[in-house]
Design a protein around this nucleic acid. Structure first.
Lengths: 253, 253
DNA sequence: TCAGATAAGTGCGATTCCGCACATACGCTC
DNA sequence: GAGCGTATGTGCGGAATCGCACTTATCTGA
């Protein structure tokens, strides 16, 4: 596990489905006061989520919520014609199912797993029952929801104003930040859905980044080989989003 | 005042700066229970906001929050180079300053007034002090914040995937919904900032809509003359956002 | 080892949008 | 009503992207 950015890395053990203790990497869980942790404890189920597993489907009733430990999830707006655009990324710093905390039953967004992930899952009815007893948890999820919302507004502008190559570089950096290694399981088709563009546009852009020595890729895998150079190719949006999160993390009443 | 969509239209009087009673059109205020209304009462200041007045500047500390009665506000993501994209609209159904309720001091978004507006303004420190005594208000603002966030994700996809003409039509419909009359004070330059495109692209698109008999416009003013036809020219996003809001309004635990 | 499935490379015409510039038209003020 | 500031119309070449289709490469499993 990598650094946890200012939050205690002291992991605690929770029981997994298979009876083995698992390490919690999720930063929201790690930061909970002991009594809230104790309250949640028995309701969390450790799960492994496969690549492209759909955690929430757009418009459908949400049945589970997830605290990711490893891997990451993509939040997508899906159009009636099937086209999609990514509007947010959720890793171990966050929570999948923010709308639940505001008493909504459905969400218009799809959330899919990128890279195999591990998470603690909780049933929505259970979570609703426990939330009143966990004010810190509720507040943390709410704040994360707003952080995610702000990220989506920046991505909205980025997707409107910047070209594919810049956005691809930006996207790779954002994912790289939340994944252990330098190699990520990605197809160009998938990247097209994230960036809201054609696969062939991704192909051209990826080819340019590869020739420039920033990345290499083979069928279904992208490896970042020169991150600083990749950061130069990305638009400012990457840094803007980073800075925003840092600012907001620091801001408390 | 128009219909208030399922919320009691019984207006209540609040003292204005000039001592005269003003009518509250803001739906959140109207739906408050009497005791919360009483708590807020004396802290609200009736204000008139001029066209293009900046209610919140991106990145700056928020000093006031606003409950709009008439007119509307645009929420914008602003890029370092000055380009901008609209990511949300706030009218009398909402609240300007949602981040405050989650204990954030700043917001990365600019909120500007479109069409002259009237609002109840409250100082941020005062609001923070009163919120613990107003759980219904807090919950309502939080839910509105999420609704706005979901709207922004749909706009993100729309701005990425649809062309200027469709987006312009969509935008005019959305604004028309929240403004009393059919004529709106809009320049093409302003519309370009909303849609994240060049003024001249707006000029071309507006010209097409005018020739098709949907709108007319003169220097700084746009009038909608055939709304149904305009709705046909807009992308599905208009209807999708409408439906989402209706769904979410109905959803309570 | 071969067949089928899936991923990636490439080409092409059409379209949209870009940045920029300049001309024109409108409305306000003196 | 003359002049000025601002809004709008329009044109141009170029760049990015689109939609589509076809080829090539790679992986997988029978």
């Amino acid at each position: 596990m990598t650094k946890t950015r200012g939050v205690s890395t002291k992991a605690f053990a929770l029981p997994g489905k298979d009876g083995h203790a698992k390490e919690a990497g999720n930063l929201i869980l790690l930061a909970l006061p002991p009594q809230e942790h104790a309250t949640l404890f028995s309701s969390l189920e450790f799960v492994r989520l496969n690549l492209h597993h759909v955690m929430h489907e757009a418009g459908e009733v949400m049945r589970s919520a997830y605290f990711l430990n490893t891997g990451l999830g993509s939040v997508l707006t899906v159009m009636p014609d099937g086209k999609s655009v990514e509007v947010g990324l959720i890793g171990k710093e966050g929570f999948v199912g923010t709308a639940i905390v505001f008493d909504f039953k459905t969400s218009p967004l799809r959330v899919v797993v990128q890279a195999d992930a591990t998470a603690y899952r909780v049933d929505v009815p259970t979570l609703r029952k426990l939330l009143p007893e966990c004010p810190v948890l509720e507040k943390q999820i709410q704040r994360f929801a707003m952080t995610l919302a702000m990220e989506s507004t920046q991505l909205a502008a980025c997707n409107r104003l910047h070209d594919v190559e810049e956005r691809l570089a930006r996207w790779l950096l954002m994912s790289h930040d939340r994944i252990g290694g330098d190699t990520m399981p990605l197809t160009q088709e998938f990247l097209g859905q994230m960036l809201g563009t054609r696969r062939s546009s991704v192909s051209m852009a990826a080819s340019i980044l590869q020739k420039a020595g920033m990345i290499t890729y083979t069928r279904g895998n992208v490896t970042i080989v020169n991150r600083p150079k990749l950061a130069e190719a990305a638009c400012d949006c990457y840094q803007i989003i980073q800075d925003q999160k840092i600012n907001w993390q620091a801001e408390t009443r």
